[in-house]
Design a protein around this nucleic acid. Structure first.
Lengths: 281, 281
DNA sequence: CGTCTCCTTGACACAGATCAATTAACGTGG
DNA sequence: CCACGTTAATTGATCTGTGTCAAGGAGACG
């Protein structure tokens, strides 16, 4: 935690906004047509309850209280909201983003089907980002206290929770390096493709949920740069891009450009290796 | 996890290196003069066993098997090493870094006194970065299986483990945004200052453990840029820099420059707030 | 059929990278 | 203790990848 805590204005801000718009639990419950069934969910192997035995799964399902449906542009939570819940994306796609004091928006992450939202708010106990649906989306609601309590009783759930957190850290290290715009965009497309496949979709025909501006913001580029590089990729036969419909013509070519961002391919470089103090357990 | 897993060459590489250099547990044990006592460690409130009751603390201490001392430049672990342990920095400072296939080095993180190393390797079960001591350092060795098992029995430890992970995610979001070189460097100095204070040192007289090149690599800048911006800060009276000795003359001024990277200050901007589906409770 | 928003394309500017040279610390061995 | 070589840090000159500004174009939608 690099920053000394400071009373932020977000709380009062959120309160103000809440007065006009914040729906009660009952309202959100209305959105869920019925209690979600993790056991029948195709995402279960990729979600938090992955690997739970039937009994544990049943207890987990009872903890997942409901799910909410969000229209494009609708908020799931806001900066300043108290952290109470993790969310799992059932359908659609969301972004988390924050606006800095200079007014610049930073897209922190995109959350695709099967992914957990809110992990970064556990420690501060408060959300420091807005979560916004990019397209019509639905999310499962995982009350953190209950999940945390349940995890004490179900070791496997504990393992999955820690794994989810660690995976999050792991995936963030990929994007945070010093890479060119081409490398970043290629890696982004590969990532979207992989997540499409995971959610049961095709991996070459991509229907992006996010605008060029969101992509640019996420990759720390200008929207114009994203456009230009997509055009460049198209000219060199790597893909076909029409607005948000992207067809990957040469995934291998993109992969080659993005290779340097792949954590799994690192360390293949031979270099001086003096001595390591690590011990195997 | 944005990348499809691929058999990496790191494993065999590490094996090769291991043949010449990898020390056994016994060797590392020799380094620890005695079993560390968390109860008497000044870092305890900031470390993993924070908030444990005396009984739990005693059990935790028994799990911390030993600690190792590392000379400057020495590796704690390497890319390709199997993940077995978390490490807590007792003294000194380490960096984790990875070299991409193009040969560019990326410093992923600096690890100061009281911080946990290896969190990002839990999920993949393998290290995708090298951990290297920047100065003479010592680390406590926290075997993960044992810690994880213990956490099932001590709920508070579980909470601390998840908090440590979440905190890690949280701190990474700060650095990953789109900021100028001045903002990044100012934020970096503030961060180092805060960590110095936490470790019981002064917060304006900084003795950096890392080279300009490491800083530049971490902040995704060129070393020359780091030098130039330090010179600029010095000219405007913000600090005095002599090699690795930095004196902060106007911490508030630096803070103002870095403000935009402070997650706690985000969300103070008024903007259109349509509707939020989050529920409290 | 207009209006709006998103996307694309071009011209130019600038932050920061790169290349190059100098200076200052820090061993290390005589 | 001092010369020497080595590495780290600074400073200057120039280059370049992206950002910024500006102007169209193409769908989407009422």
């Amino acid at each position: 935690m690099p920053w000394p805590q400071k009373k932020s204005t977000a709380g009062s801000d959120a309160g103000k906004a809440g007065a006009e718009t914040r729906p009660a639990v009952a309202a959100a419950l209305k959105n869920g047509s019925s209690r979600p069934r993790c056991g029948t969910c195709i995402l279960q192997p990729h979600c938090l309850p992955a690997g739970l035995d039937p009994d544990a799964l049943a207890r987990f399902e009872n903890t997942v209280q409901h799910y909410a449906t969000l229209a494009p542009g609708e908020h799931l939570f806001r900066v300043g909201d108290t952290f109470n819940s993790l969310y799992a994306v059932r359908t659609g796609c969301l972004k988390t983003c924050a606006v800095d004091p200079n007014g610049r928006e930073h897209v922190l992450n995109f959350h695709f089907v099967g992914e957990i939202i809110g992990i970064d708010a556990i420690f501060p106990g408060q959300h420091f980002a807005d979560a916004i649906a990019l397209v019509e989306s639905s999310v499962c609601h995982l009350p953190y206290r209950a999940i945390s309590q349940l995890a004490r009783e179900i070791p496997q759930l504990q393992v999955e929770l820690v794994r989810a957190l660690s995976r999050h850290v792991f995936s963030m290290t990929s994007i945070s390096g010093d890479f060119t715009a081409e490398e970043r965009l290629a890696a982004f497309l590969i990532m979207v493709s992989a997540r499409h496949r995971l959610a049961g979709g095709g991996s070459t025909e991509l229907q992006l949920a996010m605008s060029r501006q969101d992509i640019a913001n996420y990759l720390r580029l200008a929207t114009e740069t994203v456009s230009r590089i997509l055009a460049r990729f198209q000219k060199s036969g790597l893909l076909r891009a029409n607005r948000r419909r992207i067809t990957l013509l040469d995934p291998e070519g993109l992969y080659a450009i993005a290779e340097c961002m792949n954590p799994y391919s690192r360390g293949g470089i031979s270099r001086h290796r003096p001595e390591s103090k690590a011990t195997r357990g």
